[in-house]
Simulated scan of single mutants.
Amino acid sequence: MIPVVLASQSPARRQILESSGIDPLVLVSEVDEHAIEESFTGSVGDLTTALSEAKARAVIDRVRTAPPSELDSAETVVIIAGDSLLEHNGHAIGKPGTAQRTREIWADMAGEWTTLNSGHTVAVLERGGETPTDSGFELVDIRSKRSATSVLIGRPTPEELDAYIATEEPFHVAGALTIDGYGGAFVERLDGDHLTVLGLSLPVVRELVRDMGLFWPDLWSPRR
């Protein structure tokens, strides 16, 4: 088995991996996403890829300099990072943070088609240190790819929107909506991979893993 490190604190991404047979070690990157977003000049889709790569590289540095004990016996490690942004009318819709901003977002996108972009970065580390004090891990490959799914947003009643805002769920998720929570009832249709909407497309991650010469089932955790 090849251990997998998930460079994300997203419960949804972790659940997706666990449901696919992978029990990841979670290491949060602590990347300043806002700073990257402020300086980025490309498309919304490319921004998600840039954010996922920044998260992956931050965790790569942590594993190389101070690997957690869970990786002591590993010869190869796979790091998976992801980032998602909802796009509407060509603009990224991030985490609103407040009730007022949530209302503004919903006033703009209710009843409209939007695009959920998810960037994915996969890195492979292998033992390669030359001295006993080295962590032993060296980066041998890193690749990124994004996926996009169209999302038709519903029209909650004013009372429903008030109740949704009261949960505070939309404050902390891209686009002021998450399909795997209270907000799932307000999504009318998807066109594309539903896992992209949840933040991690397994077909994309598997493709990246295979392109780097690894066997996907080697990432599965032993059955209990």
Rank of each mutant, 00 (worst) to 15 (best):
P203S: 06
R57N: 13
P3T: 10
E87H: 08
L85Y: 01
I165E: 09
S8Q: 02
I153H: 00
P217E: 06
T48R: 09
P203V: 10
H88F: 14
V140G: 06
T178D: 12
H34Q: 15
S73C: 04
V173W: 08
D162Q: 07
I93L: 03
D72I: 04
R14I: 02
A174E: 06
V205D: 04
L51N: 07
P68C: 12
A123Y: 12
I60M: 14
E104F: 00
L51A: 06
D83H: 09
L27M: 14
E104A: 01
W220I: 10
E53Y: 12
D61V: 01
R143L: 10
V205L: 08
V44Y: 02
P170N: 11
I179K: 05
V59D: 05
D211H: 11
D83N: 09
V124A: 05
L202C: 08
T121E: 02
W106D: 00
S144P: 04
A99M: 01
T115F: 07
L177H: 03
W216I: 00
G111D: 06
L208W: 09
Q9F: 02
L208I: 12
G175P: 01
G97K: 01
T121N: 03
T65Q: 09
E37M: 13
I142E: 11
P158C: 13
P68T: 05
D23N: 12
I93H: 00
V173R: 05
V4P: 03
E159I: 00
S43N: 06
F215M: 00
E168T: 15
G119P: 03
A107I: 00
R13Y: 02
G42D: 12
V122Q: 07
E207S: 13
E160M: 10
A66Q: 11
D32C: 02
G21F: 15
G192R: 11
P217T: 07
P3I: 14
W220A: 14
V187F: 00
G82Q: 04
G184K: 07
F215E: 03
S69R: 10
L202G: 06
I80E: 04
L6W: 10
D162G: 05
G111F: 02
E30Y: 01
I142T: 11
E160P: 03
E33W: 06
E53F: 13
S8H: 02
P67H: 09
S135Q: 05
L17E: 00
G42Y: 06
S201M: 09
V26Q: 11
V78F: 08
R64I: 08
V31T: 14
G97Y: 05
W113F: 03
A166I: 01
V26S: 05
F171N: 03
Y164H: 06
I79M: 05
A81H: 09
M109V: 14
L177K: 08
K55I: 07
G94N: 09
E112K: 12
Y182A: 15
R146C: 09
E138M: 06
S20D: 14
G183I: 10
S118N: 04
E112Y: 02
Y164F: 14
E159A: 15
E37H: 07
E188D: 15
S69Q: 15
R62L: 13
V28Y: 00
V59Q: 02
L214W: 07
V44C: 03
V28M: 12
A12H: 08
D211F: 00
L200M: 15
G90V: 04
R127Q: 11
T102E: 05
M109H: 07
S221A: 15
G175E: 03
D162A: 11
E37R: 14
W113G: 10
D61Y: 03
R143D: 08
E70M: 08
